[in-house]
Write a protein that binds this DNA or RNA. Structure first.
Lengths: 335, 335
DNA sequence: GTGAAAGCGCTAACAT
DNA sequence: ATGTTAGCGCTTTCAC
């Protein structure tokens, strides 16, 4: 490996001058700069960033802990974060938790002495219980995509999930629906359900716990199974609110298999606006969440904290979702 | 920050002994080990891995350059790689190229002096032209998911794409189809098309270039557009072979919008077996690729090379795909 | 503007 | 089994 000393010797200067040239400092005379650059080129010198990191204490690397990437929802977030990091010359150290709190804790401790410049955490499901650990990490930390009550001691960039649920509910209320069923991943998506409840309360409909069906893991399969339960009820609902598009996809499939037309016989509304939602059959009415914006804001929060050498202020930033009307929702059938 | 020296002083030993304890070496007497461990606990000492890396020359970090994670196909690969790395105590530094060769090159150079222990590259689209750079990286490198001709100087773990195309073609031939159209992302998926061609050649059908429609980017949208062209042809094909499931999804949607039933009026077969394929409407017949296996093999290849301190032998490993019969393919309609 | 010295926190090789 | 001595390759501080 060719080191700074090698370059220095070749150029007839000291290590220090080479260092100045490499880092683009302006204190070097054009003459020596040229000599040094020639030496660098001839020797094919590449600075050892590890040594630089040890000396400076910064690694130009940000850790990102995320539940999964095999989910269109989070993969967008990962890509946006990576984009922001790349723009500012940072690297991305990625760790996934896969619904496993223990795995999450392992990642956390193994990253903690890895000399990251900052850490971003998406999703409260697996790391929600480890917030105290996060707070004592001694480096800038931010959270995003936080469904449950956000911790007050850390900065959080997330979506107003209560509003997301409310918008889904209000949309169906406005269409005239009064007999809803909710299919959701409880308790994870409790806040979304509260929003739905508020919307129906505004038109005098009580959305009781008996009208909430569980779809564990928020998978299409879970949605499919729950949809069958919904059909078995004595009085068929006129619409289904799901806590995620993935669930909605499974629900729609179940209805189709049982000869129910969506939206003529029953409306289905999702939350998330995953890419498939637009291509679903029928295209899914859903509540779009500003994922890219969220990811970008969170990443920039951290990078700015690094740049300014200041701790990140523990603010809560709530981004607004928006209803996206497609073809899976319509007024209830007359009966 | 509390260092080894602090611990050493507190325990009344030298740095070296602390180091031995930390790394679990057995040369330490139970007595001193206990003293040192007490000191570590009292001070809350955490080893600085950066310093260790500088001294040892290993970082326990593997780089992974991947086209995108916002694709069910690659996200599975990323997760499997991460799983293997975590099993063996390694970290994952992730970089995405997003169909941008220039971005790929930037990532490559920026990772090259980042002191990774190894580098894995998935997908030839963006990095195919930078193989010479990869070869001169001076660290274990492996390629996976290589559609085009694999370079001979590097180890490659990929799928037999020719066979994948062949299996798709043979399946349709066996059903009795003799009037096929291919919708593919050319030239990227040229090899898959060759396999399809071989299958039809076996039953005496020539699959000419005029029967190959282009779906740039392999998106559902591109598939949709190409499908419309296919319908405009004077003689309607009885089946469509697509080079990816994503394309197939768009194709199926186009047919549905134009009143064609799949598979009664026309069969559609994909390649990839993405998660949505099973939930598509109708469930998509496709060729499954052993993505997890591929990812695992490639990652283990690298980790073993690191462990054995040997260069990775430049072998080519071709994994076999398999046809997955679902409901989008059937014998051609009688006419 | 350039050079000399002193570290960053750890591991490696050898001595005891 | 433990201590001693040198680095790893860079940046930082302070002379000149």
């Amino acid at each position: 490996m060719v080191t700074m000393d090698d370059v220095a010797r070749r150029a007839g200067v000291t290590k220090q001058t080479v260092s100045n040239v490499v880092r683009g400092r302006t204190v070097v005379s054009p003459d020596t700069r040229a000599k040094v650059e020639a030496a660098i080129a001839e020797l094919g010198y590449q600075p050892n960033l590890l040594a630089r990191s040890l000396a400076t204490g910064t690694t130009m690397t940000v850790g990102f802990i995320v539940p999964t990437v095999a989910n269109p929802f989070y993969s967008v977030v990962v890509e946006e974060v990576e984009t922001v990091l790349e723009e500012r010359g940072y690297h991305l150290l990625l760790a996934t938790t896969r619904g496993d709190g223990e795995r999450a804790r392992r990642h956390l401790t193994s990253l903690s002495n890895r000399s990251l410049d900052a850490l971003l955490v998406a999703g409260d499901r697996d790391l929600g219980e480890h917030v105290p650990l996060l707070e004592r990490l001694g480096l800038p930390v931010a959270l995003c995509m936080w469904d449950s009550e956000p911790p007050s001691a850390l900065p959080v960039v997330t979506v107003d999930f209560e509003k997301a649920g409310y918008l889904a509910g209000r949309h169906l209320c406005q269409l005239g629906h009064r007999r809803p069923v909710v299919i959701a991943d409880v308790p994870a998506h409790r806040v979304r359900i509260e929003g739905m409840r508020r919307a129906f309360a505004e038109v005098g409909v009580t959305l009781g716990d008996e009208a909430v069906l569980s779809a564990p893991g928020a998978t299409p399969e879970a949605g499919y199974a729950a949809a069958l339960l919904a059909l078995a009820a004595p009085e068929r609902p006129t619409c289904v609110l799901t806590s995620t598009d993935a669930i909605a996809l499974g629900v729609t499939e179940a209805f189709r298999h049982h000869g129910l037309r969506v939206p003529e016989d029953i409306s289905v509304v999702g939350i998330d606006d995953i890419p498939q939602a637009a291509h679903a059959h029928p295209p899914l009415t859903t509540v779009g969440l500003p994922m890219r914006r969220m990811a970008r804001d969170a990443a920039e929060l951290l990078l700015n904290a690094i740049r300014d050498k200041q701790p990140v202020p523990p603010d809560l930033s709530l981004l607004s979702p928006a209803i996206i009307r497609r073809e899976s929702s319509a007024p209830p059938a007359q009966n």
